[in-house]
Design a protein around this nucleic acid. Structure first.
Length: 268
DNA sequence: TCTTTATGGCGAT
DNA sequence: TCGCCCTAAAGAT
């Protein structure tokens, strides 16, 4: 379930469980054995997220993790059990362990290489140093659709398919509109909304975007359970009635990703 | 025991 | 735009 809010959450959690003390680092699966050996037994000094990238700071290297589509981290209390499945990376101390499975990236970087990753990313709504003006600069000059731009990590870092679909719904924006046709008056509240939605997501670990007045309870409809764990307007709700207007939520493949929207509520 | 699917991203064409 | 990579769970056969 990796959008940016999860990575910020993971950064905090790693620091809380492993920060400041030596960490046993291993690669039970073997694919990261050489890298693990280089930081094994070193203290975890820092942890930060940048978009969907996670950086764990050891004295001599940054451990760079990107979960990709299927990557997942699971935490548990010591003693760590025999690894189940393909565990690329295991961190452990006297009290806790963390297992990483299926990441697209798990590597060691120098500070310069870490900076290079940061340099190629757009502003991350969850970072204090984010400059939304950089995103606006690109969006307002682009012929690409707003849907594609919001997912482009060079434009905005950390936004994924769920936040993309949901924020466009919340602002009534047709995902197919070219970025250059978006106005600044439309963009600014979208950015602000991403900051607030993703902050909430980082707190709860799930994506909830439905306003109180549109919950099934408030609308007099039966309660609903979303299988991905959060309450959303359109993401993966194709064919179901829009929570606001009742028309069918639509879906299509857009730049090789699933796009969801309400054609009636999102006409701007 | 298969096939399908997923909240991502890269490099080749 | 396409194919490919990482993995596990759910659904189909």
């Amino acid at each position: 379930m990796p959008e940016g809010h999860i990575l910020h959450r993971l950064a905090r959690e790693h620091l809380r469980l492993f920060g400041g003390a030596p960490v046993a680092v291993a690669s039970p699966q073997g694919r990261f054995a050489a890298g693990a050996k280089l930081v094994d037994g070193r203290p975890l000094e820092r942890a930060e997220a940048d978009g969907k990238h996670l950086f764990l700071g050891f004295p001599h290297a940054w451990l760079h993790i990107h979960l990709g589509l299927y990557g997942v981290v699971t935490f548990g209390a010591a003693p760590a059990p025999e690894p189940v499945g393909l565990v690329r990376l295991r961190l452990a101390n006297q009290d806790h362990y963390a297992d990483l499975r299926g990441p697209t990236t798990c590597e060691l970087l120098t500070p310069a290489e870490k900076d290079a990753v940061h340099a190629r990313l757009g502003p991350d709504p969850l970072r204090a140093d984010a400059d939304p003006e950089r995103a606006w600069h690109r969006i307002s000059r682009s012929r690409s659709t707003v849907a594609a731009l919001l997912m482009d990590q060079k434009v905005l870092a950390g936004v994924g398919n769920v936040y993309r679909a949901e924020v466009l719904f919340r602002h009534g924006i047709d995902p197919h509109r070219p970025g250059r046709e978006l106005t600044r008056a439309e963009w600014e509240p979208i950015w602000q909304d991403l900051v607030e939605l993703m902050r909430a997501g980082a707190e709860t670990g799930r994506i909830d975007t439905v306003r109180p007045e549109h919950t099934p309870e408030a609308m007099g409809r039966p309660p609903r359970v979303d299988d991905h764990g959060g309450e959303v307007y359109v993401y993966r709700r194709a064919g179901q009635p829009c929570l606001v207007c009742g028309s069918e939520v639509r879906t299509e493949e857009h730049a090789a990703r699933n796009l969801f929207w309400c054609a009636s509520c999102q006409q701007r």
